[in-house]
Design a protein around this nucleic acid. Sequence first.
RNA 1: GGAGCGUUCGACUAAGGGUUAGGUCACCUCCCUUUCACGGAGGUAAUACGGGUUCGAAUCCCGUACGCUCUACCA
Length: 511
Amino acid sequence: MDSKVRVRFAPSPTGGLHIGGVRTVLFNYLFAKHHGGEFILRIEDTDQSRFVPGAEQYIMDTLAWCGLSPDESPAVGGAYAPYRQSERKQLYKKYADQLIADGYAYYAFDTPSDLENKRNEIPNFQYNKAHRKEMKNSISLSENEVNDLLKNNTPYVVRIIMPEQETLSFNDLIRGEVSFDTSTVDDKVLLKADGMPTYHLAVVVDDHLMKITHAFRGEEWLPSAPVHILLWKYLFGINHMPQWAHLPLILKPEGHGKLSKRDGERLGFPVFAMDWMDPNTKEQTIGFKERGFLPEALINLLALLGWNDGTDKEIFSIDELIAQFSLERVHKGGAKFDYEKAKWFNQEWIKKTSNDQLATLVKPFYDDAQIEVHEPAYLVKVIGLIKDRCHLLTDFITQGSFFFKAPTEIDTASILTKWEEKKQGFFTALTGDYEAMISKGDTQPTAADLEIHFKALAATHEIKPGDLMLPFRIMLVGGKFGPGVFEIIQAIELKDAKERIEYSLKLLSNK
RNA sequence: GGAGCGUUCGACUAAGGGUUAGGUCACCUCCCUUUCACGGAGGUAAUACGGGUUCGAAUCCCGUACGCUCUACCA
């Protein structure tokens, strides 16, 4: 048996965490835990120009919320620290030097504008065998020229020499054998002018140093795989290379292409796991968490986007996912994201969650909506009454706020279509009866008792109860929704019910 | 342009040479519900196209089309 399974998620801290990223984390995590291995978080902050303060913390907060905490990370440390590539900067140069010494890489002194000019001059310009002799580098220049440039501290990058017409293939855990002709990829930069490695060098060096056994990443990385394979071959030996798996992409719900932050804004659903505010632009992006998703539901729906266990089962806990997960059942093709189905997953998880737990989860949403919850037990009771009609935690506000304060918006239009004098009389009598019950001290009638009383009163007024139910409901909750009318009264109690009826009656008489 | 990868109902997917191509979301109908939901019962709806191989193809092979990704001193 091989050594212990070690996988890593290696994001660059440039902004909020997209659900595609969360799914990459998930598959890493599931694979690691399924095999009793370790999951490492490594921060790839090699591009200083794109560094966004707070993004790293956001990533860690998101993983914590999702319940996908790493075994090793910049925050918790580990045997292979540091886990931030910017703090590992000095490590990479020696490998770049080694590649140059071994003839696999070279210095290139071209300035950004040199490259830009070249690209403008030659359509589809590639820095490769065909053109590298036209450029300013240690292949085209004499040894003396190169030494002079280096001595004068001329900025340079290190580029890999892509061999010509060498077929490179590897076994992708998801796709099977994939092969490339090395001539189709250019001489990638390995070490930048600022001394930082590019992704290509850093990923190989760090995966080696951190003893990564399986490397998962998005499908968009497939075309650069030959560079990484070559680097493994040159630096550490191809036999030590981790097993690669390129994950399918999460696509836009309509049209084509990768799901992006913009799609969420356009179509009105979250794309980031949690709220994210860009510290530079102050732009706010909504997250699944704040939209009212349970982390279990987000994990569940992401797992089923591109994977299934081969049965009809769709609801999985994280432990069930760990037990069942296998890369063989991960799809090759991308999957379109469907927000309706996402909400269905959340609804299923709301149903699975106890009322007590839901109460603590829902409470912050009530606080944000400035709805005061005096008694936690009352909130639990309300949740029991409305939970079946909630898809999102935020639905507990729209479905439940009237339990805490009388509605101010009353759909009087719906009452007025069939409103008549005798109904007015009925409700006036009803408030009278409620008043009498209150003064008798009978403040806690059951829903069943209230219904019996209501029907009896309707009979004396010679009105069918059915003609009264809808207006009654609207008076109590403001609109055509909510649980049973008498259960509502039982919950909000008689005094409140009476006041709501009176308020609506006043509105109606003004119309 | 080049390279790589992909393609089953509108969406997520099952079926790995033999099924009336199954399930879930969405949509429609009905039942339940004196509201809205939940729940229950039904329904509409798919193997991109063209060639092979085979007694038999969604499944294997070839071609075509379409789509996606990459083609930065970004990851």
